[in-house]
Write a protein that binds this DNA or RNA. Structure first.
Length: 638
RNA sequence: GCUGGCGUAGCUCAGUGGUAGAGCGACUGAUUUGUAAUCAGUUGGUCGGGGGUUCGACUCCUCUCGCCAGCCCCA
């Protein structure tokens, strides 16, 4: 019998009989690998373990520990979901069911699912796992596939087949009583799926297009070990616990009201205080960073939005105009036209550039009702906007400096994990190609210099310029859209802005839009969830609370409060006739960083007994010592 | 916007055609308390809003506003 040689990841080479399956090879390497392997990577292509090896090859095995392994594992689980649904609802039509980041989903054309359905489906899936169906791949011609799925009444599969390029091999996978069109690969048997959970349901349009029929989607996830599933479910629960909408009410940060209208938020004193502290820091850093502050109104004449092109390209996101003395005015969806008018208000010398105009500008955009979400997605929000005008030769440095500035600021707010994206020239674009290339080079160089890996979305830029998007990851490892640095080759033309260069001639400056927090509202919401409402001391609305034990200690408590307030600490005194435990509980729930207990002992020694919101008792210390400690916290932003 | 679900006291929630309830909060009183809830009393609701069906509607129908999940989109 002919033999082939396979190269393994460790570089070793084995001679095996031609036609040996990857699974058999895994078994020969070790029983544990055979048990844990989910899929083989043969010469770089993911392949079913059960398929025979026919040529010399480099073979890698993936277990649940790799992204590829997880994906295959969950994709197989998605098929089991479809299998279970078809057993319970024979008339349900299957569509697609991919693995996604943390799990998988499958879309069905059927009646909406209710939570009880999910339990039944989940139970059926466990049964399917136990039944230990091998997943069998078979390849077939287009006509055979049409016949097969038409016969099953699976009308969506025909559409999918129509979309698969002619040269591609069609494959179907069968596990027991279920067959689905699928590229694969799959885990070798349904029995390999150990711990699964259906997490939610929802509507989804066929092919993501609202003109199409709405399907019923079921989301779920699967893990190999119980601990992993439990951890995942705990994370979901933790996210619910931290939800800024819940904490926003609990901590009296903000509210929304039916009579106020959807997508509009009211900042309450505590929330507004945190916002002000964040904005103060923002202003301080921007001043130091060479930005100039400007302010602009909330509305502007239609002429302005015609010139900027917003009425042409952004009208769907803008509100209907207001009539003022027979003139049409629009609520601003962006700040840029105003900043450009400021730039344009006089001639500029090359010596003045770069000019960085910054504003916390509140903009209004029409968002579809279904898209609104707490503070994260609203209709009126404040952009921490800046527009940078610079000479071409300044541009690379300016981009580099801007990206560094964003990262530095975000780190100060406790974020350490970033996702960076570069979007380049789309097919339909304005401006000179060379300018685009120069700008993309500058963006790329700045990205490189951060040392953080980034993704490139080729052709993903807006028609008016390339951009960097920056997402932050919070403490639950969720991604949030945050900063953006965006070139604009369109507005400078439209507004015909210029500067006088050394040659005495007018030249067009580069213009860059930059938002750092992005939206102050969203950033605040993310902060709340990132810290679970327990803001670091420098941001906490109340940094310390003095707790008296009995009425006898009121006067001293007030004296301590005043002393701290004089030192610039945001402090309150709780001298109500309640028991200490009660006051401690309230302070804990308000997430106040420090509780200062004062009783007879402390009065006698001119001290405070310090307790942190983590429940640590730091013991008694002189007031001055506490002030020193908390000021250190504030200074180091912890 | 679409599909589904929801809207009852400040908050969390019970209440399936017969005239609205609990816990927490708030207020008052008592208690003077040592690190996550002292006790008692009081207060509190055009049952999101409009229209309809009915002898009678929180409950059924309808329109509307808002919220939630998902799709789409996005700061």
């Amino acid at each position: 019998m002919a033999s082939i040689s396979v190269t393994l990841p460790d570089g070793s080479v084995r001679e095996i009989a031609m036609g040996t399956t990857a699974l058999e090879l895994a078994g020969a390497i070790g029983p544990r690998l055979a048990r844990e392997a989910l899929v083989a990577e043969v010469n770089g292509t993911l392949t079913d373990l059960t398929s025979p090896l026919t040529t010399d090859a480099t073979v890698t095995f993936h277990t649940f520990n790799s992204d590829e392994g997880k994906e295959v594992y969950r994709h197989t689980t998605a098929h089991m979901l479809a299998q279970a649904v078809q057993r319970l609802r024979p008339d349900a039509k299957v569509t697609i069911g991919p693995a996604i980041d943390e799990g998988f989903y499958y879309d069905f054309d059927t009646e909406p699912f209710v939570p009880e359905d999910l339990e039944a489906i989940e139970a059926e899936m466990r049964k399917i796992a136990k039944e230990d169906h091998p997943t069998q791949r078979s390849e077939m011609s287009r006509d055979e596939a049409y016949a097969l799925f038409d016969g099953m009444g699976e009308t969506y599969k025909r559409e999918i087949i129509d979309d698969i390029p002619g040269e591609e091999t069609l494959s179907v996978y069968t596990q027991g009583d279920f067959t689905d069109l699928c590229r694969g690969p799959h885990a070798p048997s349904t029995r390999r799926i150990k711990y699964l959970k259906l997490t939610s349901t929802g509507g989804a349009y066929w092919r993501g297009d609202e003109a199409n029929k709405q399907l019923q989607r079921i989301y779920g996830t699967a893990f190999e070990k119980k601990g992993q599933l439990d951890e995942h479910l705990a994370l979901i629960e933790e996210a619910e616990r931290r939800d800024h909408r819940r904490l926003g009410t609990q901590l009296e940060l903000y509210s929304t009201h039916q009579d106020l209208g959807g997508g509009l938020v009211l900042w309450h004193p505590k929330g507004a205080l945190v916002r002000h502290i964040a904005e103060d820091y923002w202003k301080e850093r921007h001043l130091a960073g060479g930005y100039d502050f400007v302010c602009s109104p909330h509305i502007g004449r239609s002429k302005l939005w015609e010139t900027s092109g917003h009425l042409e390209f952004f009208a769907d996101d803008m509100y209907s105009p207001l009539d003022i003395d027979g003139q049409e005015y629009y609520l601003k969806p962006m700040n840029c036209p105003f900043h450009i008018l400021i730039y344009k208000s006089r001639q500029h010398s090359y010596r003045e550039l770069p000019m960085r105009l910054a504003e916390l500008g509140t903009v209004y955009r029409y968002e579809r009702a279904g898209a609104l979400h707490g503070m994260m997605r609203v209709r009126g929000f404040t952009q921490d906007d800046a527009h940078i005008f610079c000479r071409p030769e300044q541009m690379p440095d300016e981009i580099d400096r801007t990206l560094g500035f964003c990262l530095d600021m975000l780190r100060a707010f406790g974020f350490t994990q970033f996702e960076l994206f570069l979007s380049t020239r789309p097919e339909k674009a304005v401006g000179d190609v060379q300018q685009w290339l120069d700008a993309e080079d500058a963006l790329r160089a700045a990205l490189e210099r951060t040392g953080i890996p980034y993704e490139v979305d080729e052709g993903g830029g807006a028609f008016y310029g390339p951009k960097i998007d920056l997402n932050i990851r919070d403490s639950l490892n969720r991604q949030w859209q945050c900063s953006t640095i965006q070139f604009d080759f369109n507005l400078p033309e439209r507004f015909d802005i210029s500067y006088i260069a050394e040659d005495g001639q007018q030249h067009r400056p580069y213009m860059v839009h930059r938002a750092l927090f992005g939206s102050v509202e969203r950033f605040f919401g993310v902060l709340v969830e990132h810290y679970a409402g327990a803001f670091p001391v420098w941001l906490a609305p109340v940094q310390a609370v003095v707790l008296s034990i009995t009425d006898d200690h009121r006067e001293y408590a007030e004296k301590v409060r005043q002393e701290l307030a004089d030192a610039g600490i945001r402090v309150e005194a709780d001298v109500r006739g309640e028991k200490l435990g009660y006051k401690v509980r309230e302070a804990e729930m308000a997430k106040t960083p420090y509780m200062l207990v004062v009783g007879a002992r402390e009065i006698e020694n001119e001290q405070v007994a310090v307790r942190t919101r983590q429940g640590n008792n730091l013991g008694a210390m002189p007031v001055a010592a506490f002030i020193e400690r908390i000021q250190e916290d504030i200074g180091s932003k912890v």
